[in-house]
Design a binder for these strands. Structure first.
Length: 113
DNA sequence: GGCGTGACGTCAG
DNA sequence: ACTGACGCCACGC
């Protein structure tokens, strides 16, 4: 067998797994960074999910606009894509509350398998 | 090659 | 209940 280079496991796993989950998000639903990170195996790896989005959003064509924070709010700052994301979500039948919050009980994507 | 940063989240005080 | 600090680790300089 070929000798593996000093690879500390498989970063691909976390990366691919997270990407896989994100791509599986149906329309009209949203997911949180922590949720994806938890499903990927790291409950505290939310930042890594963010890093993947910024890095693979163009390459993997991830629905970055379906990613929101644990509060059910958009994390992007106004002028940085916030309005764009909100607009995209509204087009997918996602409704925002008075505080620009999404009802996670209704729109949070819950993978059953 | 080391330090700082970052679309967040969790833990501790 | 709220605020502050830390953690995760890949990427940029």
């Amino acid at each position: 067998m070929k000798k593996q280079t000093t690879k500390p496991a498989a970063p691909e796993t976390f990366h691919q797994l997270a990407v896989r989950l994100i791509q599986r998000i149906p329309k009209g639903k949203v997911a949180t960074y922590g949720q994806i990170a938890t499903l990927a195996g790291d409950p505290r790896g939310a930042r890594q999910v963010v890093r993947i989005l910024n890095s693979s959003w163009k390459k993997e064509k991830l629905p970055w606009h379906r990613m929101i924070n644990r509060n059910g709010q958009i994390s992007l700052p106004p002028g940085g894509g916030y309005e764009l994301q909100k607009s995209l979500l509204e087009k997918e039948k996602v409704v925002f509350g008075l505080n620009d919050t999404v009802d996670l009980e209704r729109f949070l994507w819950k993978p059953k398998r």
